[in-house]
Amino acid sequence: MTHVSVTVNGAMREADVEPRTLLVYFLRETLGLTGTNAGCDTSSCGSCTVLLDGESVKSCTMLAAQADGRELTTIEGMAEGDQLHPLQESFRRNHGLQCGYCTPGMIMAAASYLKENPSPSEGDVRLALEGNLCRCTGYQNIVKSILDAAGSMAGAEA
């Protein structure tokens, strides 16, 4: 067993787990944070994307042990109380989700990207989502949602 101690959505969490425990299952099964979904075996679909020290990573391709001592944000940590994160708001406003399974990963990938590039073009957003697959939306409204959120986040800071 290996000891893993992480800050998740602002709270300290720790547990002893098998070394092979993937971060996604540590979050889902050890910590009960089931908002992060697993979709593939191969680091392809991006459903499991979370923020590690503020940057997007695929939690299915990382050991929980690799996150020890670091800070994680999952979809459950995006809203502040009842106040949805601007990305969550804009996904709703723009019908950026259908079945919703890829959505947490899309939102976390977008949150990371908008920190790097707060005012992207449509093409930028599409490229930034190259590691996130969706089977329902054809991406059109996901891209629209992210551009809309970028606008409202910029507006909020101005």
Partner: peptide, 9 residues
């Protein structure tokens, strides 16, 4: 290389 998530790791 890969995608943004891959490049972060």
């Amino acid at each position: 290389v890969g995608d943004p998530q891959v490049r972060h790791m």
